[in-house]
């Protein structure tokens, strides 16, 4: 995958003056469990500006997927508000496109029909939606594979199909929950490049949830570090690495510094998580 240097699609400096596209305010989510109430997300607030790439990082079990589902409108029964372009959002919203942690292609549909799925739901005719879908298949670098079925593709390719399918619905905000978690490191880095390239090409506002520090630093403009149970935002780190970026950046010195900083924040939280797993299951800490 050769990375052609993109013509500066967007300014390198963050668009600070613009109004945020996504505003998450004071989200609290509690689960009732056999051991009592569990606060999965605790007063989380942040916003994402148009064209910005924000990463959310935190140890396993800190409430990242819960947050993802809340913003995507798949979970209700939470406190706080989610706003998209000023409008309060309840339930799934066409402005938000979700890419899931798990493999989520439809095995009974070919690549092109997978990608055309949201267009089909929107009532677009077959010819037109295939044409549109082809554009997104190309965008994720799968041209030539339109007629294949997911079973005939590798894990990384399938994840790209999911990505193209979500992009085809042209969401204002792309929401990703550990989209590369099941892939090997090399594929992950290369797919990261693809994401960067697409994000720059479309000026796509993106919220990426991950537990992978390298991935977060490679991709994001800003990283929110979350605490372990209850999930709060511990720190916000601005990643001042130049754009356009590629996976080559992982060997730079500035990159290393960011990674080290975030790791020192995360280490504490991750070890709390481990202790928690070692001791009695699900006991609440620092509640």
């Amino acid at each position: 995958m050769a990375i052609a240097p993109e013509p500066a699609g967007r300014p390198d400096t963050a668009p600070a003056a613009q109004a945020p596209l996504l505003v998450v305010e004071d989200i609290v989510k509690r689960f009732a469990t056999p051991d009592g109430e569990l606060i999965a997300v605790d007063h989380v607030s942040f916003d994402v500006k148009p064209g910005e790439f924000v990463g959310v990082i935190g140890p396993s079990g800190c409430g990242k997927s819960t947050l993802f589902n809340i913003i995507g409108g798949l979970l209700d029964d939470y406190e706080g508000t989610v706003r998209v372009a000023g409008e309060r959002v309840r339930g799934p919203h066409p402005a938000i496109g979700m890419i899931f942690q798990e493999e989520s292609t439809f095995p009974w549909r070919s690549v092109i029909d997978n990608v055309a799925f949201p267009l089909e739901i929107a009532g677009m005719g077959r010819r037109e939606r295939h044409e549109r879908a082809r554009h997104f298949v190309k965008l994720v670098g799968l041209d030539g594979f339109e007629r294949r079925y997911p079973a005939q593709l590798s894990g990384g390719m399938r994840q790209r199909v999911s990505m193209a399918r979500t992009l085809a619905s042209e969401p204002k905000i792309l929401l990703m929950d550990e989209p590369f978690a099941s892939l090997d490191e090399q594929t992950r880095l290369l797919l990261g490049d693809k994401v960067l390239q697409i994000q720059q090409q479309l000026a796509q506002t993106t919220l990426l949830i991950t537990h992978n520090i390298t991935e977060a630093v490679q991709l994001a403009d800003r990283i929110l570090v979350m605490t372990y149970r209850p999930g709060r935002i511990k720190r916000v780190v601005d990643i001042a690495l130049p754009r356009p970026r590629s996976s080559q950046i992982v060997s730079s010195e500035a990159f290393g510094r960011h990674v080290a900083q975030i790791w020192s924040d995360l280490r504490e939280e991750a070890s709390l998580g481990l202790q928690d797993e070692d001791s009695a299951y699900g006991r609440e800490r620092r509640a």
């Binding site: 798949l74 496109g97 798990e102 799925f117 739901i121 619905s169």
Partner: peptide, 21 residues
């Protein structure tokens, strides 16, 4: 698979569409 249903919900499908599609 649950995640496939969630994909449907995220694309705003009706209950009927989730069933048939």
């Amino acid at each position: 698979r649950r995640v496939l249903i969630e994909v449907g919900r995220s694309f705003n499908l009706t209950a009927r569409q989730i069933f048939t599609k």
